[in-house]
Design a protein around this nucleic acid. Structure first.
Length: 283
DNA sequence: AGGAAGACCTGTATGC
DNA sequence: TGCATACAGGTCTTCC
């Protein structure tokens, strides 16, 4: 599921129910997800107060008053459900436990946060607050695409001489952290760059144009997610999935949305992932 | 060393 | 209905 905008939407949805609140009980219902959970995770979470929620790339980081930070990654299929809390006009009773509910956190005040992840590619970990940049999952990440370190000069220099397709380069979290398959497809469409073009053979001007386009694509999706936190879609208490229309992603065979284009969206497979693009617009 | 597969899992849609 | 296959919004590990 989640790329940066979805993760940011989950973070924003969790903020009002978690920040400043104490975890009364942590129900850890299996040994781990993609990797084993850290030792005694339930005990280390129970009784802790959440001081704040941050995001780095697709990771949600919760700073606790115990001196530790809890890390959460949603993988491909991770979902977060809130129940027992009054959020705006909605109040969600606790639902019956579902298959693949792996971790359930109960907070003071009655709110419950449930992590559900059928494919179990997600992850949770605990580390000493302040050492996050050393964490193995975070240390090699590139700059945040919405931050100042991600700029035209950086991207041009970073992709110089690279022989890999631009699609693969933008999916590489060491180049820029937080993009996934959907938003890379969308950004390349807006930049009119063919996903199979070798990154190092694209003009600097076109590479540079990707920087504001990537920011736009992500900011628009975050805005759509933000509105989903307020509309009826959040009535089920689930965070992170929201209505969003894509221009090329998952639109194989449908007409290109560029005015006058008349092209049909195509799909190719690049290193095992689908790339959607318009063969007429993108070169 | 860079770049491409393979691996990890379950669920869903599709075709025969 | 049953079964096989393909595919899914991620990313670490292995192989060339």
């Amino acid at each position: 599921m989640p790329e940066l905008p979805e993760v940011e939407t989950v973070r924003r949805g969790l903020e009002p129910v978690m920040t400043g609140k104490r975890i009364l009980n942590a129900d850890v219902r299996r040994e781990g997800l993609r990797w084993p959970f850290p030792e005694r995770m339930a005990e280390r979470l129970t009784g802790a107060r959440v001081l704040g929620l941050r995001r780095r790339s697709k990771y949600i980081l919760g700073d606790l008053d115990t001196g530790e930070t809890v890390l959460l990654h949603l993988g491909m299929s991770g979902r977060v459900l809130i129940s027992g809390a009054q959020i705006g006009e909605f109040h969600h009773a606790h639902p019956a436990p579902e298959k693949h509910d792996h971790v359930v956190l109960d907070f003071e005040g009655g709110a419950r946060v449930t992590l559900n992840d059928p494919r179990r590619f997600g992850a949770m970990d605990l580390f000493t607050t302040g050492t996050g940049e050393l964490h193995p999952l975070i240390a090699a990440l590139g700059p945040e695409p919405l931050g100042n370190a991600f700029n035209e000069e950086y991207l041009v220099a970073r992709l110089k001489g690279r022989n890999t397709p631009i699609k693969s380069a933008l999916l590489d979290q060491r180049v820029v952290a937080g993009l996934g398959n959907i938003y890379v497809c969308e950004a390349l469409y807006r930049a009119r760059i063919h996903p199979a073009r070798k990154a190092g053979r694209i003009s600097s001007a076109r590479i540079a144009s990707l920087v504001p386009i990537i920011r736009d694509v992500l900011n628009e999706a975050i805005a759509a997610g933000g509105s989903s936190l307020r509309d009826y879609r959040q009535a089920d208490g689930e965070l992170g999935y929201f209505q969003h229309t894509f221009r090329v992603y998952d639109r194989e065979g449908h007409p290109c949305k560029t005015p006058e284009c008349q092209g049909k969206i195509a799909r190719i497979v690049q290193s095992g992932r689908s790339s959607f693009y318009c063969p007429r617009c993108q070169r």
